[in-house]
């Protein structure tokens, strides 16, 4: 870094100094609220710590156990990976679709935008109870409606093959939150581009694929990273509703982490679990970031 500093022109140095100045609040916060806790966690991952008593150094044993003699770790990894693969594409596509719908300027649109935001607002126990009620196999609204059209609905949360899709369905329902971000992104697409394309005879689909999507790629990139991180860290739904069951079909990684840390007081092992998940997410992010040069289009670069 120092070598490159010397190569900079005085003007570039000034710009860099200004940048560091602007970044300084974040750098300070990062050191206090992230570096310190992470350093502690890295240390703890090499110990056995009951939280209540002093940690005991055990070397890499937590990591050895994770990979060689812990079937639950692999199960949690498999469940979480499947969840990411199921929910991530759906969330990205449906969020965009909803945002495009809400981007229409029609009378009363403010009302609709608010309605679609509701699911993102209600949190915790109320939502969980509501979903159990909606997806109740015999009397729930969803299966009653399916019954009306002659389809026998599944047992949802209470079937080992359907529990994971049920949790995915819950998280997709909250897509109104990410639609807001798409909506903001759509505002940055200059209208004259559409007008020019219209004059050139481009149809709706043509304009969508050739203007909306390319100019929205920075937002799509953002959503991809954020939703990926969120999906890997999925926890609350399983914690409140399924407790990881039935037959560990919703035994998410973070649920395993939580049980190890706060139920079994095995914080050393839990730290190792959490750090490994961070590494997986980091690797995925770096990979996506690497591919982004090919498909993300920045107006300013």
């Amino acid at each position: 870094m120092l070598a490159s500093w010397r190569r900079l022109s005085p003007m570039a140095r000034r710009e860099a100094l200004e940048a560091y100045l602007a970044l300084s609040p974040w750098l300070l916060g990062f050191t206090l609220f992230t570096v310190m806790p992470i350093a502690v966690s890295i240390f703890l991952s090499f110990t056995q710590w009951t939280i209540i008593e002093q940690p005991i150094w055990i070397g890499a044993d937590n990591y050895v156990r994770m990979f060689t003699r812990d079937p639950l770790f692999w199960q949690a990894l498999k469940v979480t990976g499947s969840f990411v693969l199921i929910s991530l594409p759906l969330k990205l596509v449906l969020g965009l679709a909803l945002a495009l719908l809400l981007n229409n300027r029609l009378p009363g649109m403010n009302f609709f935008r608010t309605v679609f935001y509701i699911p993102a607002v209600i949190s915790g126990v109320a939502v969980s109870l509501m979903w159990m009620w909606l997806l109740q196999p015999d009397t729930g609204v969803v299966n009653t409606l399916l019954d009306a059209v002659g389809v026998k609905g599944p047992n949802w949360f209470w079937d080992k093959d359907w529990a994971l899709p049920s949790v995915a369905l819950m998280s997709i329902w909250k897509v109104g939150g990410s639609a807001i971000i798409y909506l903001a992104g759509l505002q940055n697409i200059p209208a004259q581009l559409y007008e020019a394309a219209e004059i050139d005879g481009a149809g709706k689909w043509g304009r969508f694929w050739r203007i909306t999507i390319p100019l929205l790629t920075p937002t799509i990139f953002f959503q991809l990273i954020i939703e990926m991180i969120d999906s890997f860290k999925v926890f609350t739904e399983a914690f409140v509703i399924t407790q990881g069951g039935p037959l560990k079909s919703t035994y998410f990684y973070m649920l395993y982490f939580y049980e190890e840390a706060f139920r079994n007081f095995n914080m050393g092992y839990a730290s190792a679990l959490a750090l490994f998940l961070t590494l997986i997410i980091l690797a995925t992010t770096i990979f996506i970031n690497y591919t982004s040069k090919r498909w993300v289009y920045y107006e300013s670069e």
Binding site: L129, M132, P137, D138, Q243
Partner: peptide, 12 residues
């Protein structure tokens, strides 16, 4: 009641 019924009405 099935597990579905029971769980709607209160967990553990």
């Amino acid at each position: 009641p099935t597990p579905a019924d029971i769980e709607i009405l209160g967990t553990e």
